[in-house]
Design a protein around this nucleic acid. Sequence first.
DNA 1: GATTCATGAATAGACAGTCTTGATATAGAC
DNA 2: GTCTATATCAAGACTGTCTATTCATGAATC
Lengths: 111, 111
Amino acid sequence: MEPLYGVLDMLVLRTLLFGPLHGYAIARAIHDTSRETLHIEFGSLYPALKRLELKGWIAAKWEMSEHKRRAKVYRLTPAGRTRLRQEKSEWAEFVSAVARIMKPAAREIDS
Amino acid sequence: MEPLYGVLDMLVLRTLLFGPLHGYAIARAIHDTSRETLHIEFGSLYPALKRLELKGWIAAKWEMSEHKRRAKVYRLTPAGRTRLRQEKSEWAEFVSAVARIMKPAAREIDS
DNA sequence: GATTCATGAATAGACAGTCTTGATATAGAC
DNA sequence: GTCTATATCAAGACTGTCTATTCATGAATC
């Protein structure tokens, strides 16, 4: 019980499949793609990016953003791609295990 | 972003819909129902039970287990039932938001 | 033109909450 | 006696929140 940690990491990696992005844009992308459901606080996003970089799943480079501001642009590394696949399948397994418990069961119906 | 915390709580509440159980049995039930996918450490389960009791979602009573050992038996309170419904719908919303991000998107296909 | 304000972008630290690990306790079953 | 059932607690790791700070730019206002 703890595939829970790491969902944010997975979302970040997934978002970078679209192409390199800076942190601010990653947060916006996750927010928008989830239709406003997922809010990523910068206080959790930036540490997450640091984590991922440290592990080698993503790589960073300072560049200029669309708005002519300095921005650290992150891109997925090959190792990151592999990692993403792994996290994705663990997540799917976890979700379906939770679903098995949550769905109404026979036991409950005849009680 | 943090409906993550609380999944264990939800699973416990859900498990108690089957009827009152003691902690040890709750862990076993979750483990079994999830087909061995979800392992609940006692070090996280018991604090979780204490939390839930403190909030009034569950109530405890010392009784004898099937094996004639003293066991703290927990049952769902009415407030707990309400809470369960709420957590269930939040969880569903969260899972589908994550799914929206994870599924292959048009953007990615033509890149 | 100068000043003010909102926005884009990143960082850092204090704190809270959860989970893991590992140790300890007790009592009945074999 | 040892194994299983049942519960508790404390230390530590990790994530996430909240809040503040910094710096640059574009837009609005005077």
